[in-house]
Design a protein around this nucleic acid. Structure first.
Lengths: 200, 200, 200, 200
DNA sequence: GATGAATGAGATTTCATTCAT
DNA sequence: TATGAATGAAATCTCATTCAT
C-alpha cells in the first residue's frame, strides 16, 4: 500500500502540487457539486495527472473533507468576530463590517459548504461537523440578537438570520442574481439590523 | 421512434403507475439529490421495476423536469397569493398566513427545487425557467415591500426576504434544525415584518 | 401457454392481421436488418399493437423465418424458370426475360435474404436452408452455362454470375446506385451473356 | 470533458493496446456484424477489459468508423492499381494480378465494409463516404472497360463488375462457398475479361 | 514524484417477451 | 381478438481507484 499524504514529508514541489489540487478541488466542487465532480476534472484543473491525485489524497472524499474542514473553520471564526451590535449608528456600522466579512468568506468557501448537500447522507461524521458549524455560527448570532433586543429572542432568530445571509450570497455566487457588492451588503445589513437587532 | 410516454394512451392503471413514479421521484430526489438518485431507487420506491420507469419517462431527467415544473408552478402561485401587507396587526396576520402557506408548499416541493443545484449546469432551459420562477416570486415580494414601506425599497430586498424563507425551511426539512411549526412560522413572520415591511 | 398461430384456426380478421404483420416485417427487416428491427416497429408498421404480434408469431425469429422461407422459395423457382440459353439472339432474349424476373423478385424479397447476414450465426437451420437455396440457384445457372459453353465451365461460374446479379440489385435497392430499370436489365443481361454463356 | 482518446498522449504500451483493439474489432465486426458485436466481445478478443476499450474509443461506433475508414482507403487504392487491360494475353495476366490483389484486400477488410449494411442508416456521414468509395472503385473499373472495349460501355458495367467481385468474395469469406484460391481468381478473371473487357 | 494504463463495480437504457384486462 | 402494463436480461458507458513504469 502506497503511503498517503499524511505519512509523507513533502518537499517544496510536493507542497505546491498538493496546494494546486486543493484550489482545483474548491473550484470543481463549487461548480459541479460532489457527485458530478470527477477526479479527472480536479486533476486537470490542477494541471496534473490522474494518478498524482492519489499521491496526495486517499480519495475524492478525503480531498472534500480537507476543503470542508477549512471552510467550516473559516465560517466558525465569523461567529467570534461578531461583536455586540448596539441599536445606534455605531452598531449599524459594526454590523455592516461583519456582513462584509461574511460576503468575502462566502465567496471563497461558500460553494464547498453547499456541495455538502450531496455528502451529508454519505458521510455522517462530516455532516455532524457541518451541523455543529452551522449551530456555532447561528448561536453566536442569536446571542448578539438577544443581547441587543432583550427578551423574546430565540435560537430560531439566529438561524433565520443566517439563512438570509447564506442563501442571498449563494444566489449571488451562482449568478442567479447579480447585485453589485455594495448593494448586496447594504441590503443585508439593513434587513439584519431592522429585522433582528432593532428593539421593537 | 421508441415507444416512450408522449404518444401512448394511458389507461387507469397506467395513470396510477405514472403517478406513483412522480411521488417516488419527489421523495428520492429530495433525499438524495439528482445525481445520487438512481432510477432503480425511484422505481423501487414506486414499487415497480426500472423497466416500467422507462415506459413513463424518457429518462431520469425527464422525470425531474416534470417534478421541477410542477414545483415551479406552485412556487409562482405563492407570489399571487401575497396581498398588501399593512403596518398594523391585520398586516401581520395576513403575512403570517402567507408564511404558513409557504411552509406547506416548501414541505412538498422545496427539496425538488433544491436538487436543481445539481442540474442547473446540465439543462439550461430548466435553469432559465427556475430563475424566472425565483424572479417572479421575489419580485412579488419586493412589490409588496415597496408598497408597505414606500421609497428606499429595492429588488434586493425581495431576494433577501425570499432567501431567508427558503433556507430556513430547507434547514428545517433536512433536519439540520428542528423547530416546531408554530415557532418556525412565528419567527419567519416576525423577521419578515420587522425586517422588510415595517416602515423605518 | 397461449396458443400460437399454427394451432389456431384464423378467421378473416385474423388472417388479415397476420398478413399485415408479414408485410410490415418485410419492410422493417429490409430497412433495419434483423437485429435493429424492433418488434415495436413491426407492430407499428402493421398498425397493430405490440401484444398482438405475439398472437400470430412465437417471436421475432418466427416471423423472420416465415419471410425467409417465402423468399427462398421464390428464389428457388427462378432456377427452374431458366431455360437453355442458346448463343444466338433468341438466347439473349430469353436471358433478358429471366434477368427481368430476377430483378422483380429481388425487389420484393431481396432485402430479407440480406437480413440473413445477421441471422446466419444465430440460427443454423435457417442458415443451412439459405445455403441450399443459394446452391440450388447457382447450380441451375451453372448447368445452363455448361450446356451453352461446353467444357471448361464450373460451379464457380454459377456463383460468380449469381453474385453479380445479387449485389447489383442490392446496390440498386439500397439506393447506392440508381440506374433505370432498362439499363440495369440490359447491363446485367449483356454481362451474363458475354461473360458466361457465349462460347469463347 | 471526458478523458477520451483524442487528447491523450499514448506511450508504447498504449499504442499496442489500441492496435490490439482495432484488430479485435475487425475480427468481431466481421463475424457478428455491427449490431450483434458487443463491446465486451471486442475487449475480450483484444485480451483487455471493456473499461480499457473506452480509454481508446469513444464508443463502438467510433471504433467502427476507424476500421471503415481504413477499409475504404484500401479499397480506393485498388482503383489506382488497375492499369489498362488489353485484349490479349498480357491484358488477361494483368487483370489476373489485379483480381488477386482484390481478393487479398477483401480478405482483410471486406467484412468490415459489409458490417456497414447495419450502419448505413445510423451514420449518414460514413454512409456517404462509403458510397463515394464504391463509386471511386467502380468508376475506375468502368474507365478501363471503356478504354478496352470502346463505345457502348457505361457506368453500370463498372458496378456490375464490382458487384461480382464483391459478392463472390463475400460468399467465400463467409464460408457459404469454398473454392480454392486459384479457382476463385481464375473464375473471376475469366468472367471479368470475357464479360467486360473483351470487345464484342 | 509523476503519470499513463488497466480494471471492474455500478448506473443507465433498451427491448423481447409475458401477463392481465 | 386486441392491447396496454410490466418485467428483467443484456448491453452501453462512466469513473473512482489501483498498478507499473
Amino acid at each position: 500500500m502506497p503511503p498517503t499524504t499524511r505519512e509523507r514529508t513533502l518537499r517544496a514541489q510536493g507542497r505546491a502540487t498538493r496546494c494546486r489540487l486543493l484550489l482545483a478541488g474548491r473550484k470543481v466542487f463549487a461548480s459541479h457539486g460532489f457527485h458530478a465532480a470527477r477526479v479527472d476534472d480536479i486533476a486537470a484543473a490542477a494541471k496534473t495527472s490522474h494518478g498524482t491525485f492519489y499521491l496526495y489524497f486517499a480519495n475524492k472524499e478525503d480531498l472534500f473533507r480537507a476543503l470542508a474542514t477549512e471552510a467550516m473553520d473559516e465560517m466558525e471564526t465569523l461567529g467570534d468576530r461578531l461583536g455586540p451590535i448596539t441599536a445606534d449608528d455605531d452598531g449599524r456600522a459594526a454590523l455592516r463590517r461583519w456582513v462584509s466579512d461574511f460576503v468575502d468568506i462566502y465567496a471563497t468557501h461558500g460553494k464547498v459548504i453547499l456541495a455538502w448537500a450531496d455528502r451529508e447522507f454519505a458521510d455522517r461524521d462530516l455532516g455532524r461537523r457541518g451541523n455543529e458549524s452551522l449551530a456555532t455560527l447561528s448561536t453566536a448570532i442569536a446571542d448578539r440578537i438577544a443581547e441587543a433586543r432583550g427578551g423574546g429572542s430565540t435560537a430560531a432568530d439566529g438561524v433565520a438570520c443566517l439563512s438570509m445571509l447564506e442563501r442571498f450570497n449563494y444566489f449571488q455566487q451562482s449568478r442567479q442574481i447579480r447585485f453589485d457588492r455594495a448593494t448586496a451588503i447594504d441590503t443585508l445589513t439593513r434587513a439584519m439590523f431592522d429585522g433582528f437587532f432593532r428593539p421593537t
